[in-house]
Design a protein around this nucleic acid. Structure first.
Lengths: 107, 107
DNA sequence: GTCGTAGTTCGACAAACACCGTACTACGCG
DNA sequence: CGCGTAGTACGGTGTTTGTCGAACTACGAC
């Protein structure tokens, strides 16, 4: 038997499938922006539960799914926890400066 | 009597009133993004009518008002025409790289 | 096996949004 | 003056979006 690892049924867009508009839409929400900022601040991956936002779990799931579909974050499943990280490389390659500009904003 | 100049009842946010989230929201729409791209491409001001977008005039007005309130564009009234320009200086100062990153995206 | 923990999925609902058409103001020209 | 042009304001409509709670799956520990 193979290991009982539930391989990522998570699908992200390929780098060349990411659109500016999608990324902008994804970032244009206070909750999602907070998530992105926290992911950027912590240089390591963060589980959903480690995010400090003022919405319920199901709403977090929803927002993370949007961020993932937009190509902003990647997720790695490990047991019951899902670790999220920022797709910095891809975003910087596609839209150089965009992410840094957003993060540079006064909090 | 003073000159019949209708002084700009146009109000924009001051530079320090501009928020990232507002700017991102403003840019996260295909029509507005098209407008911003055209303003960036033309290094001079553009009248509302000079914009080539696929919506009616009233909708253009609406989008320009959103862009203006977000602090993305400035407008100068001259006769019956209003000339719009990108607030590059302010945006670059606040969110260095953001605008360039957005504009760098493959069309 | 039983419990607890981590996240997802599924409606449902209210608020926000893009869009339009029409009516309106304001300027400039003949 | 009257007409055309540039753009705004208003009211309405259909769609999208953020939010939640409750029910569900999946893993780990006891």
């Amino acid at each position: 038997m193979a290991k009982s690892v539930t391989l990522p049924p998570l699908v992200y867009p390929d780098r060349d499938e990411i659109t500016v508009e999608g990324v902008l839409r994804a970032l244009a929400d206070p909750v999602r922006l907070a998530i992105v900022r926290q992911l950027a601040a912590a240089d390591h991956e963060l589980s959903c539960g480690a995010l400090t936002v003022s919405v319920t779990k199901s709403t977090i799931t929803h927002h993370l799914s949007i961020l993932r579909q937009a190509g902003v974050v990647a997720g790695r499943q490990e047991g019951t926890t899902r670790f999220n990280s920022l797709r910095r490389n891809d975003l910087d390659a596609l839209f150089p400066g965009l992410l840094d500009g957003v993060l540079a904003a006064r909090r």
